[in-house]
Nucleic acid binder design. Sequence first.
DNA 1: TCGTTATATATCGTACCGATGCATCACTTG
DNA 2: CAAGTGATGCATCGGTACGATATATAACGA
Lengths: 180, 180
Amino acid sequence: MIDVKTLCLGVLSRGDASGYEIRKEFEEGPLSHFSDAGFGSIYPSLKRLLDDGQITMLPHNGDGRPDKKLYRITPSGRHALYQALIKPPSADKLRSDLMFILSFGHLLPPRHLDRIIGDRISDYRHLIATLEVEGSTAHRTPGERFVEGMGLALYRAVATYLEEHRHELVAAALMESQVA
Amino acid sequence: MIDVKTLCLGVLSRGDASGYEIRKEFEEGPLSHFSDAGFGSIYPSLKRLLDDGQITMLPHNGDGRPDKKLYRITPSGRHALYQALIKPPSADKLRSDLMFILSFGHLLPPRHLDRIIGDRISDYRHLIATLEVEGSTAHRTPGERFVEGMGLALYRAVATYLEEHRHELVAAALMESQVA
DNA sequence: TCGTTATATATCGTACCGATGCATCACTTG
DNA sequence: CAAGTGATGCATCGGTACGATATATAACGA
């Protein structure tokens, strides 16, 4: 798996940013669908990237705010990023608490089961609606559009599957609960 | 996110198993699509579960093999599992190196781009074919069938999207490389 | 003016992941 | 039959990452 240092280099390759802004990118931007990093990983990474000379810290023009450190990628950093990008990508990884839980569906109260599935469906439907609006307004590179499209396709597939098979699972749980 | 201790309890709730067999479950079984755990997490977890009295170690009948420790879940362990299962599930998480790389598609050689996408498509197509055979033979609980179906639906969505949009991205990269 | 949200940096403990080491058994291949 | 290969099985260790938390200021509506 690509490490957080490389993820940060990726964000900085698009323009200068602070640690906070990098975080936001993983929370909201097109990269958010398939990458993630929290402060606890970003700040140590930036420190190490500085030490390695792959980024530099811009001198903050002392006038207004003393905080906010802006970082800029160096040629060495771009090279490191490129090297990481052309390495064969490792397999995709999906982690889902919900799916783990549902695989034990027969042990759970049918009503509860129905509720958590319903909740998740509306989560995804909201997310999809948001992305559909954003996608038409924000302008993106071809790569970003591709990735965002993949995210949308995946979310739709999940929501649709949940909608179409929800009742099967709940019905099975109901049978189970009547036996017990 | 659900921790590895709980994941182990989940596997053991279906029957006694060794650490190695638990690992296999996350590598091949229906749980493999949305959960994961390696030896480095499983063995320490089993140790802690033993200490907490949520599992017991079966006495290996000393005849043949001295290795292979079999573990069995206790009532206390089943309770802990249930408590974890009824907690509201955290959001799904997708991690994909490939998508990160493709979001920088315009920086990469078009031929390379085309190759890694093609490779991934055939990976998924093979996986899908395997699952389609397995799904009809192996017998599963309703929950397991549900989760396996979701896995299949997702893999199909990914493969289809890659196939349908591959050329767009490669074309954009080609334009870019001709400008530079 | 007061509470809440957003901006912003940073650390600390824990959990986790990947790599590695070791040993045995079964199977196959020369 | 020997030798190698791959599966079974246990275990640890170092590095990395995650989640929670602390702190402080700016902005903004009630």
